Measured scan of single mutants.
Amino acid sequence: MASQGTKRSYEQMETDGERQNATEIRASVGKMIGGIGRFYIQMCTELKLSDYEGRLIQNSLTIERMVLSAFDERRNKYLEEHPSAGKDPKKTGGPIYRRVNGKWMRELILYDKEEIRRIWRQANNGDDATAGLTHMMIWHSNLNDATYQRTRALVRTGMDPRMCSLMQGSTLPRRSGAAGAAVKGVGTMVMELVRMIKRGINDRNFWRGENGRKTRIAYERMCNILKGKFQTAAQKAMMDQVRESRNPGNAEFEDLTFLARSALILRGSVAHKSCLPACVYGPAVASGYDFEREGYSLVGIDPFRLLQNSQVYSLIRPNENPAHKSQLVWMACHSAAFEDLRVLSFIKGTKVLPRGKLSTRGVQIASNENMETMESSTLELRSRYWAIRTRSGGNTNQQRASAGQISIQPTFSVQRNLPFDRTTIMAAFNGNTEGRTSDMRTEIIRMMESARPEDVSFQGRGVFELSDEKAASPIVPSFDMSNEGSYFFGDNAEEYDN
């Protein structure tokens, strides 16, 4: 783990906690998980779902989305002020799938948001429990990260689609708070800032007046979040320049895209947490497990152990491969979309394939898809080993990566060399080191050039047997250095459309 220093740990961010010791953190995270579980059980009762239907990941996603929508204050306010045809701002819903006479049927349900809020609060001892809501947002974000390569979004903001390893959390809503900021990748933060800068260039009043003052505060806050992700002084200094700019424009845009590229080699610290679907927490609570009393951590053995003992089902389209669908969801559960496939294969105990080789589309089923041909199958979400999630980018030494994705962002704290394609990355730096950030740029390029592919990161860190909950005997895996390590390699994943 990167030293926490003055930073709060993510469990504290996750639970809005002030400084807590490890036991208190485990208890408050457990409380959050228990609340999600209780809410899910109650919703299944309301909807009269069978046990099997309640364990269907598509039903879980609909129920999670309903509660997130019920608590989305800004959108609710907007919907009330701008009524649109056929949208009731006070209601929320989605597809629920039921097994009827041996076939899967889709039923569109509609609930009062007020009623959903009441059920959620009741499951969370009367609190709004925003930490639990954020947790579900991060699960949705991790699922998107594993399912889609955001080529269009990258290109629109002047970045290269091969930089997708920097895009963790790119679909997280803005209201996801400190826990959300911690899991956002460098590219995601750059993209958010670039969008602001572009608006400022096109709209003279963007930075002016009372609204402009708020915009400015948001801009500086985002700059500080991004600065905190960088691990070298030169990158941090460049972020200070971007933040202090009187009138952010093209120079800042250039600096930010430069920094994003540099992060492929001088990786930023991005938190990883295993956020599971509500249909995993519900049955665990129903079986009598007391998360608050037992304590829970999002970055240790607990999620692995929970998945070892969970039964989750998914709808499967006619030509999809259930094992591939399982891999997709497994990666999402562990926030591992940008991790090295060699490491993932070792931990999972079966070969993890790149996205383009998977015969599976996303987990969600569109409303126009034919239910007649839908089957369902068990998702295999178990693992051979477990490993500690990392909050750091690993040290800054790398190795060759593949054509589709030119770097990785480690999820697990496991000893290995970190793949990246130096030639491709360095070719993108057209040696432009003039301007006010020239000395920093020169320094950053120097550090990137001296990074050695064969150097090892996370020295001495290994994986653990599932029986080793105290992480007492690390097993340090050895990897084939020459092997392909990137998930979005030469990829044809669908595009994420909101």
Rank of each mutant, 00 (worst) to 15 (best):
R55G: 04
S376Q: 02
W104A: 01
R216H: 06
H334P: 05
E14W: 02
G5V: 06
E18D: 14
A179W: 11
G180A: 05
R208G: 07
R391Y: 14
Q58G: 00
A234W: 04
Y296Q: 02
W207C: 09
I109S: 14
M440K: 05
M159Y: 03
G30F: 08
R384I: 13
I119G: 00
M189A: 12
L226P: 10
A263C: 14
V329P: 00
N432T: 11
S438G: 05
Q231R: 15
S413H: 02
T433A: 07
N205R: 02
D468M: 11
P161F: 05
M137D: 05
M43P: 02
D51H: 05
S482F: 06
L68Y: 03
N417W: 00
R389E: 02
F489C: 10
G462R: 06
P248S: 08
R74I: 08
Q20N: 04
Q241Y: 06
A70H: 03
A278M: 15
V414R: 00
Y281K: 07
Y219H: 12
L379D: 01
R208F: 07
L315T: 01
R246M: 14
T378A: 15
C223R: 13
R400V: 05
S413G: 13
S467A: 08
C44W: 13
E11Y: 03
S450G: 11
Q241V: 05
M1T: 12
S9D: 00
G268M: 07
L298S: 07
C164V: 14
R174V: 01
M66A: 07
S314I: 11
E380V: 06
C164P: 08
R55Q: 07
N483F: 13
D240V: 15
P248D: 06
S274F: 07
P161D: 04
F39E: 01
Q459F: 14
M163F: 15
S457W: 12
S3N: 10
D455Y: 15
I408C: 14
V352S: 05
N224S: 15
L328Q: 08
D127P: 07
E220W: 12
S467E: 09
M331N: 06
C279L: 14
I109P: 00
E434F: 05
G460P: 00
P303A: 12
R416T: 09
S335F: 07
Q409H: 11
